[in-house]
Amino acid sequence: MHDALIVAVKGLAGGTLVVLFALLSEGLRPKRFAGLFSAAPAVALVGLTITLLDKGPHQAHESAAGMIAGGAGMVAYAVAAVSLLRRVRAARASAAGLLAWAGVSALAALPLLA
């Protein structure tokens, strides 16, 4: 029950912070500058904060370490999206970009999870 509540709180807080960053990004120009905030660590800030409060610093440290791999994947996703958007619609580019995220994150995670 406690774990389910924590996950629910993470969901609500994560969604809220993402909306706040999205609003900021909407108001920024040029679009390339706004894009910085499309990759803001909103979910991570929420997740790590709640993990800190609920489980303590060690588990938050572990989550942050795993996030390094995901961050490498995020760069790969964005690079793939820039290239793919020249040829296909955003929905298809996003889906294909997720493969790049997964592949690079998995590779980067190997030394972190060993």
């Binding site: 679009k31 910085l36 803001a40 961050g71 964005a78």
Partner: peptide, 19 residues
Amino acid sequence: AREDARGAVIGGAAMTVFA
């Protein structure tokens, strides 16, 4: 959308720094 993604390349690299 491509411009937004270009910015996100740098935002993503900075996200790795955050982590």
